[in-house]
């Protein structure tokens, strides 16, 4: 459960009394207070050129996942790991072809690259040998980066450290895709031990 709202200020009928109350709040929520100061100031000056409403909604369905605050399923504790993800990498090999795909926990398959695609098949000698796995990894990584999927969970175990699957995973990682997702950021409560830094406030 989360509200897809980004609030800066709360609209109140009696601004000054609300403001006074907030001042008594002793930096209970510093960020909100700063925004209210801003509102108060802008209200007193000449009408601003571009108005900004106090509640802002970002409709991008991938935004909260990228900001790390979206809901992420935890899975079940007696089950083998494999449900705790926003995006997950899957690899499927049939008798002749290999297919790599990205799954979303709600949306299902969203991106798919296979050696049966003519674009890739055209340049390969065989569609399921080691070279095919490596090239599939390279092309797949590029598609992921092009579509903004830079991180995804991976529950694939490579049976052989120098085998096809391991080389595929290595090609994907070399292509720039991180095969580990960050954990979900849970809101900080007053009784929490520490106040960890918010991921979206960290700028490089």
């Amino acid at each position: 459960m989360f509200v897809p709202k980004l609030t800066s200020q709360k609209t109140t009928k009696n601004l000054s009394s609300y403001f006074l109350e907030k001042m008594l709040n002793f930096r209970y929520n510093t960020n909100k207070l700063i925004n209210e100061l801003r509102l108060h100031r802008s209200a007193s000056t000449v009408t601003p050129k571009n108005e900004v409403s106090p509640i802002f909604t970002n409709r991008n369905p991938r935004n909260l996942e990228r900001m790390r605050i979206a809901y992420k399923p935890d899975g079940y504790h007696v089950e083998a790991p494999g449900r705790n993800y926003w995006h997950k990498l899957l690899l499927h090999s049939s008798g002749r072809y290999v297919t790599a795909s990205v799954h979303h926990f709600e949306g299902g398959e969203i991106l798919r690259t296979s050696t049966s695609d003519w674009a890739l098949k055209k340049q390969l000698y065989k569609t399921n040998d080691t070279a095919a796995y490596i090239n599939l990894g390279r092309v797949f990584a590029q598609r992921c980066l092009q579509s903004g999927l830079i991180e995804m969970s991976c529950y694939i175990d490579a049976p052989n450290p120098n085998g096809k699957v391991a080389l595929f995973l290595k090609a994907v990682e070399d292509g720039g895709v991180c095969l580990k997702e960050p954990t979900q950021f849970k809101p900080i409560r007053p009784w929490d031990l520490e106040r960890p830094e918010k991921p979206w406030e960290v700028t490089e």
Partner: peptide, 10 residues
């Protein structure tokens, strides 16, 4: 205009 700054409302 002034730069708007927002905070996610949990």
């Amino acid at each position: 205009m002034k730069e708007p700054v927002f905070e996610y409302d949990f």
